[in-house]
Write a protein that binds this DNA or RNA. Structure first.
Length: 269
DNA sequence: AGCTCATGGCGAG
DNA sequence: TCGCCCTGAGCTG
């Protein structure tokens, strides 16, 4: 269950395990048999992430385009690989490592032109060096849509998901229902810089931690978070629990089919 | 065994 | 805005 940091990490992990060498490809589940057959035994030449999209590049040239969606998972292991189960969409096998892909929204073989078209419809990604926050600002600053919805729109910003959107809005004291056009330039610049820093830490540790050092469980003498997403956060999935800063109960409400979390005191309209 | 929920996104209406 | 697609864990009986 990934946000952009997971995908950038996966791009690096794939290159580390398979890069520059021939890879065996198969689709035990069968839904990607044709694509796997075309890639099989070719060298992996590069890997790349843009937002939540993963691209594995092969000699040919050709790309495997992967989007994990809400349920997709990639798992690595060392050879010998165990017999694959019937939910494995794609298995990559190298000399010493294998990778199993399950449950993705997308796993398809695409051309370089098709890859370019995907980049073109995605917004700037805080984790891609050189990506331009002004492109996002152009959309945000003229939109009546809430900032919470805009942050989830991959055409506006690529890679932010439900956890980072809730947490970055909290860290900047911004009410999630504020219209994009009412966000100031300074606020957006600060949020972009913060997202880049938080997501880089996310890549490094392979989990989402957003709590500042002075607010950690150790610093504040409270119990550490125990939750299946793993990280220390201010508001995500903390509905009805006290805000770490002011004690107000964290609120939750559906927004664009996802659960939004915020502190009504720290995030004033 | 069946339900609900989860860090997403698409197309129909 | 809704329904649908993908999987698995953690409940409930």
């Amino acid at each position: 269950m990934p946000e952009g940091h997971t995908i950038h990490r996966l791009a690096a992990d794939h290159y580390e395990r398979f890069g520059g060498r021939p890879v065996r490809a198969s689709s035990p589940q069968g839904k990607f048999s044709d694509g796997a057959a075309l890639i099989d035994a070719r060298p992996m030449t590069s890997t790349e992430a843009h937002g939540k999209h993963l691209f594995l590049g092969f000699d040919g040239p050709a790309w495997i385009h992967i989007h994990l969606g809400l349920f997709g998972k990639l798992g690595f292991g060392t050879t010998p690989a165990p017999p694959s189960t019937d939910t494995v969409r794609l298995r990559l096998l190298g000399e010493s490592d294998y990778a199993d892909l399950r449950g993705p929204t997308t796993c398809a073989l695409i051309t370089d032109a098709e890859k370019q078209a995907i980049h073109a419809r995605l917004g700037p990604d805080p984790l891609r060096p050189g990506d331009d926050p002004d492109k996002a600002w152009h959309r945000i600053s003229r939109s009546r849509t809430t900032i919470a919805a805009l942050l989830m729109d991959q055409k506006v910003v690529a890679g932010v998901g439900n956890v980072y959107r809730a947490e970055v809005l909290f860290r900047h004291g911004i009410d999630p229902y504020r219209a994009g056009k009412d966000v100031t330039r300074a606020e957006w610049d600060a949020m972009w810089a913060d997202l880049a820093a938080l997501m880089r830490e996310g890549v490094r540790h392979n989990r989402i931690d957003t709590v500042r050092p002075e607010h950690t469980p150790e610093a504040m003498n409270r119990a550490p978070r125990v939750d299946d997403h793993g990280g220390e956060v201010y508001v995500y999935r903390r509905a009805s629990m006290p805000c770490h800063l002011c004690g107000t109960e964290i609120r939750t409400a559906p927004l664009a089919a996802r659960n939004l979390f915020w502190c009504p005191t720290c995030q004033k309209p």
